[in-house]
Amino acid sequence: MMNDLTLKKIDLEREPIARQVTRALRQAIVSMQLLPGEMLSEQELARRFGVSRSPVREALIKLSEAGLVRVLPQRGTQVVKISRAGVEDARFIREAVECAVVREAALKATPVMISELSASLTRQRRAQRSLSTEDFLALDEEFHRLLAETAGRPSAWRMVEDIKPQMDRVRFLDMTKAVPRHAVIAQHAVIVDAIKSRDPAAAEAAMRHHMSEILRSLPELAGQHPDLFEPEAVMSPEVLSA
């Protein structure tokens, strides 16, 4: 899909070039513009961005550290296929962080922040049919970021951002069938209601349910798109009989 990839020219005045390239490539991978298994060319990416190869190389190193690409000696850089184990690990960590976040949010929420969360829900409801999957997921991210801000833990969201790209690729694959938008919004509403009620236990329970959705959809999506997923490891008979 390299020929179909369209990326905006870099705005040199906003922030360092390499950071912009990293963000743009990360989004292209998450949104499946760059498919799992696809080979990437530094030279071609540099041409499309209108930059030198140096910031592209730096961006690919960052993405390699994030587990989204791998460098193949003598061959180039490849978008990593989706690992079910990696998705499950990321979900485990994210659930732990976000459950702690909503417990604190239920205890610390100010009227202003509750109003912000309610406004975010309104934006999601208005956009559930009109926006692209990518844009709707941006509203989902906004909601979770607001939860961290409500809890007074903005750094918690930055931690989540670092671990969730594998989850995001799965969620992007088929939001309509796997986790319909109306279901996502309904789950968000339950979380907000618990925060409004100052009920940390209910907020945590609602978040755990919300985070568990991907475990139900993951096997189905892996079955529908086997070419996008890493093959699951098969245990040897010796290990199985141990």
Rank of each mutant, 00 (worst) to 15 (best):
N3S: 09
T6R: 10
L7T: 11
D11H: 06
E13F: 05
E13D: 04
E15G: 00
P16R: 08
V21M: 08
L25R: 10
L25P: 15
R26L: 08
R26G: 13
Q27G: 12
Q27R: 15
M32P: 00
L34A: 11
G37T: 14
M39C: 02
E42C: 13
Q43G: 11
E44G: 04
E44Y: 08
L45K: 04
R47D: 06
R47W: 03
F49G: 02
G50T: 03
S52Q: 05
R53P: 07
S54Q: 12
V56P: 04
E58H: 02
A59Y: 05
K62I: 03
G67R: 10
G67A: 10
L68E: 02
R70N: 07
R75G: 01
R75L: 05
Q78I: 02
Q78F: 00
V80G: 01
S83A: 07
A85L: 10
A85T: 09
A90R: 15
R94F: 08
A96W: 09
E98F: 13
A100L: 14
A100F: 12
R103V: 11
A106N: 10
K108L: 11
K108T: 14
T110N: 03
V112W: 06
M113G: 01
M113R: 10
I114E: 00
S115I: 07
S115N: 11
E116F: 14
E116A: 15
A119N: 12
R123V: 02
R123Q: 15
A127F: 11
A127Y: 11
Q128S: 09
E134F: 07
D135N: 14
D135I: 03
F136P: 07
F136G: 09
L137N: 13
D140Q: 08
F143G: 07
A148T: 12
E149H: 10
R153H: 11
P154Q: 09
W157T: 04
W157S: 03
M159G: 13
V160A: 04
K164Y: 12
K164C: 14
K164A: 15
Q166A: 13
M167R: 06
R169Y: 00
R171K: 13
F172M: 08
D174Y: 00
D174H: 01
M175C: 03
T176A: 14
K177P: 00
K177I: 08
A178K: 01
P180G: 04
A183Q: 07
V184F: 00
Q187Y: 01
H188V: 05
V190F: 02
S197P: 08
R198N: 10
R198H: 15
A203K: 10
E204W: 07
M207K: 10
M207D: 00
R208E: 15
H210Y: 15
E213A: 13
R216H: 06
G223F: 06
Q224C: 03
D227E: 12
L228M: 08
F229V: 06
A233D: 10
V234E: 13
P237R: 07
E238A: 12
E238M: 08
V239R: 15
V239E: 11
S241M: 09
S241P: 01
S241V: 12
